[in-house]
């Protein structure tokens, strides 16, 4: 474990709970893409299948459980409890255009052609594009609530910190996983436009609004 990965995981945890609290407190999921949340739930479920077979540490197992439970809870709040506030008119990204190609790629490009490894690879590829429905929804509505932009900033920062973690691990542990690094770069690059808007607007107390 290193500081980049620890801060990254905590940033990821913060993002998930900021969103969960926003929906729970405001009793509304306006401006939030349910499709992205479904993709994130799929990412965690396919990635953490080794939860019971491969014990790494208490921290690792605990975080996996928290990530799965909180993301499933978010999907439940959005599609069942506060379904009336779900903005399906703006959450129209065709996620099958993400899941199918990513599924195919996981079969073609992976470290080991075994079910667990292919599912892990699928999860890594899917996570890199899972935020697209959310970013697409913001581009359609033209703006995002400030709390939603904080959620996105924390979520985008987590994988950027993981990139630093992989640089650290490469030099100090000789650890390198090309699939995770390439997907992590794609994932972080997708946030660049948002990071620019967040830093130039939200940081100065303005609302995040995309140029019309």
């Amino acid at each position: 474990m290193n500081i980049f990965r620890l801060v990254g995981d905590l940033s990821h945890l913060l993002a998930i709970f900021v969103l969960l609290l926003k929906i729970w407190k405001s009793r509304s999921c306006a401006g939030v893409s349910g499709k992205s949340q479904i993709l994130f739930a799929l990412v965690f479920i396919t990635r953490y299948l080794d939860l019971f077979t491969n014990f790494i540490s208490v921290y690792n197992s605990l975080m996996k459980v928290i990530f799965i439970a909180s993301t499933v809870a978010t999907v439940y709040l959005m599609y069942i409890k506060f379904k009336a506030t779900y903005d399906s008119n703006h959450d129209t990204f065709r996620i099958e255009f993400l899941v199918v190609p990513v599924g195919g790629l996981a079969f073609l490009v992976n470290h080991d052609f075994t079910p667990l490894e292919i599912l892990w690879t699928f999860s890594i590829y899917l996570e890199s594009v899972a935020i697209l429905p959310q970013l697409f929804m913001i581009s359609k509505t033209g703006e995002a609530e400030t709390i939603t932009s904080h959620y996105l900033f924390a979520l985008g920062s987590y994988r950027a910190l993981y990139l630093l973690n992989w640089i650290y691990r490469y030099y100090f542990e000789g650890y390198f996983d090309l699939i995770a690094v390439v997907a992590g770069c794609v994932q972080t690059i997708l946030y660049c436009d948002f990071f620019y808007l967040y830093i130039t607007k939200v940081m100065w107390g303005k609302k995040l609004s995309l140029p019309a």
């Binding site: 080794d50 490894e117 000789g174 650890y175 996983d177």
Partner: peptide
């Protein structure tokens, strides 16, 4: 070195 098969990250 620890190869990618070691899935010790979240």
């Amino acid at each position: 070195p620890a190869g990618p098969s070691v899935k010790d990250e979240l």
